[in-house]
Computed example of a mutant assay.
Amino acid sequence: MKIPESLKKVVNLVIVDESAASAPAAAETESDSSTSAAGTASGHQSSLRTQDAQTGQQPGASSGIDVADLEKRIDTLIQDNPAYAPYRAFAEMSQSIAAAVPDEQQRYRAALLGVKTNLDALLGAVNSHADVLATEQKNFASAFVARAEADIASLREQETRLNEEIGALARQLAEKNAQKDAVSKSINSKTAGLAKAKIDFESVRTTLVQKYDGIVKKLQGYLGESAHG
């Protein structure tokens, strides 16, 4: 953007007024900014870890959202919002004079005069982002969140049914195990009974064999040829 002649005069005036006051603090401001940036980054990481812990988010969980793409899309909506236009004009003006006015505070003051607005108007324009975010949050809740919660509810119902089936199978398994134990006891009892029956039968057979062998011997002994000889 070409700097209008009238704005060039404003820029020159702002530079002259501010250069003496801003120069001594430049090095300190830069150092403070670096320290603040490092602290902010560390604090942001800590905040993310705290949020994950509070929401019960599992490590490695996938949200199904392309965060960078979502941020870019919503940011575009914010900047395309007509209510944001005053700040957009101010930002474009500030950018156009960046080379001529490297000091940011001086540049902001020059741009403010250049677009002929005031601080309240700029703040109102920037704060219009809240309306866009509120609308997007409603859309997110009604579409993505509602669908995901419905899927989760369906999965919970499926989980409940499976737990019930597992419980029923566990009860059936317990019953079958009890039946198996009873059958095993019957097998052991009958096996032992059969073994005892075999022993008893053999005992009876032996006794009767001995009994009738004794009779045979008596008959042969008393009545046989040797007895008459």
Score class of each variant (00 low, 15 high):
96 S>E: 05
42 S>H: 02
77 L>K: 12
94 S>I: 03
80 D>Q: 13
93 M>F: 07
69 D>V: 08
108 Y>D: 13
106 Q>M: 10
100 A>F: 06
64 G>H: 05
78 I>T: 07
94 S>F: 02
62 S>A: 14
109 R>V: 07
90 F>N: 01
83 A>V: 00
88 R>Q: 08
74 I>Y: 01
44 H>P: 00
56 G>S: 09
105 Q>T: 05
104 E>T: 11
75 D>E: 13
43 G>N: 11
104 E>Q: 13
101 V>M: 09
99 A>R: 07
81 N>K: 03
49 R>G: 04
94 S>P: 03
87 Y>C: 00
50 T>K: 14
108 Y>K: 15
76 T>E: 14
52 D>H: 13
78 I>E: 05
103 D>S: 09
90 F>A: 04
57 Q>T: 13
66 D>N: 15
66 D>S: 15
43 G>T: 02
92 E>M: 10
61 A>L: 07
63 S>G: 09
101 V>R: 01
67 V>G: 04
107 R>I: 06
90 F>H: 01
85 A>E: 14
84 Y>C: 03
50 T>Y: 10
64 G>R: 03
69 D>P: 01
51 Q>R: 03
90 F>Y: 12
55 T>Y: 08
67 V>L: 12
42 S>F: 04
96 S>R: 01
84 Y>I: 08
44 H>M: 10
62 S>R: 14
77 L>E: 10
79 Q>K: 13
50 T>N: 09
99 A>N: 12
84 Y>E: 05
102 P>G: 05
64 G>A: 07
64 G>F: 05
106 Q>S: 15
82 P>E: 10
102 P>L: 04
54 Q>D: 10
92 E>L: 09
105 Q>R: 10
80 D>G: 00
102 P>A: 09
87 Y>K: 00
101 V>N: 03
108 Y>L: 11
49 R>I: 13
101 V>I: 08
49 R>P: 02
58 Q>N: 02
95 Q>Y: 03
81 N>A: 03
39 G>Q: 14
68 A>S: 13
39 G>K: 05
47 S>R: 12
74 I>V: 08
89 A>Q: 15
41 A>I: 07
85 A>P: 01
95 Q>R: 12
103 D>V: 06
94 S>M: 12
73 R>W: 06
64 G>D: 13
100 A>H: 04
94 S>N: 02
60 G>D: 01
95 Q>D: 12
89 A>R: 14
86 P>E: 02
92 E>W: 04
95 Q>F: 04
108 Y>G: 02
71 E>Q: 13
96 S>T: 06
